[in-house]
Design a protein around this nucleic acid. Structure first.
Lengths: 212, 212
DNA sequence: AGCCAACCGTAACGTACGGTACGGTACGGT
DNA sequence: ACCGTACCGTACCGTACGTTACGGTTGGCT
């Protein structure tokens, strides 16, 4: 019972990363009915190793979600020459990125399993799957978008009192009912052109609502 | 194997309704780890009756979701004297209703179980839980809101080409990140005053975006 | 060569739970 | 009084799966 605090201490060997990739693939294919045996078979490793490395099934799922989260990294925005076009470009970029991620099989699968576990959790809300997905999903998006919004206000292109409120409105304009419909199994395609169209529309609407 | 099409043929006895209410309560308390035994105990009925009435566990869950859905009924809008105030009132009413339902424990629990099952379903997308929730959730809201939007456009108060697009924007402005955060287990309260405030804000923003 | 740690594969254990069977009871019909 | 129906409660069965244990193999180190 080593109560390690390896939450950010993700010292993963290549072998372990391969295992987590296998788990990720299985999560996409089979959802939460993923079994320890299936992961072991897919990754060609023993169950004993799975338990040694990740503790238990929950630990494996947690590590898998964190592993996927660690792959996604944001791109910072430059402060220089920030004008209206740069603001629009930044917002549209965020919107397209977000819609692409959101509608991907991996995101849907991960959100599904996180929602499932959020229902029956004993964790004291410390490090559960829902919290991790929340942290690397909406919250991460908010943190990444915040500097853009602040630069926009600084440059006199936007007007708002609370950054959080502005972000949440942008979130709503971008995501709309897409995520919940995907999570509920509505098979509707989100093609690349339609993503870019939606991103532009959401950005335009946002600028209308928050223009000075 | 009676392939009954009792989808709308919900001939439920009082006893069965009580059982479904018990199942609903358990679903809220325990989420998807609800067991047939626990339902039987809670409802003081035998498992044999559960299987006779609902076929199997999936049938029980489906019946429970449909039972809850049947309780929620929309209120039609009157065509007479439809002016700007009536439009605003209608939109705000929809928004508050929706936010209230959305943030309720029952809705969260039902959406959780539906999302969970949408991941691992063998049903040919025919009558699965995700489809039912979708049908009685976002889609029902769209159907209820549509006449309001059309009346608004008819009265020259709104301008849009596609009703569906307008609805989805309104949906985004109202719901924002509330639902996904609740589903992921983010414990943030949505008080009655804040619901009404959000409904007003969303309505105002919607009117700005879709004014002629 | 000898040793040890890490690992694979698989068998085995314990349990939770979906589903079934069966005895017992209440009740309406005949 | 007799029977059938509907139901409750509970014991039971089969299986899936999380978890553990163990024998066998590889590979690095001395």
């Amino acid at each position: 019972m080593k109560s390690e605090l390896e939450i950010s201490e993700t010292a993963l060997t290549e072998r372990q990363k391969d295992v987590l990739d296998a788990a990720l693939a299985l999560l996409v294919e089979a959802g939460d009915k993923l079994t320890m045996t299936s992961v072991a078979r897919r990754a060609s490793c023993s169950k004993e190793s799975l338990y040694k490395w990740f503790g238990d099934r929950d630990g494996l799922l947690t590590a898998t979600v964190q592993w996927q989260a660690s792959k996604v990294r944001g791109v910072p925005v430059s402060r220089d020459g920030f004008d209206r076009d740069a603001l629009i470009a930044g917002l549209e970029r965020f919107a397209t990125d977000w819609l692409r991620v959101l509608s991907g099989k991996i995101s849907v699968a991960l959100n599904r399993v996180a929602v499932t576990h959020a229902g029956t959790d004993k964790h004291g809300l410390g490090r559960d799957l829902g919290g991790i997905v929340l942290e690397n999903g909406p919250f991460a998006m908010a943190r990444r978008l915040e500097p853009v919004l602040l630069l926009g206000r600084e440059a006199g292109l936007l007007q708002f009192d609370h950054t959080d409120e502005a972000f949440r409105t942008f979130f709503g304009l971008v995501v709309r009912d897409v995520q919940i419909r995907l999570l509920l199994g509505d098979h509707f395609e989100l093609s690349e052109p339609s993503i870019e169209r939606d991103a532009k529309r959401a950005t335009e609407q946002f600028l209308v609502l928050y223009k000075p």
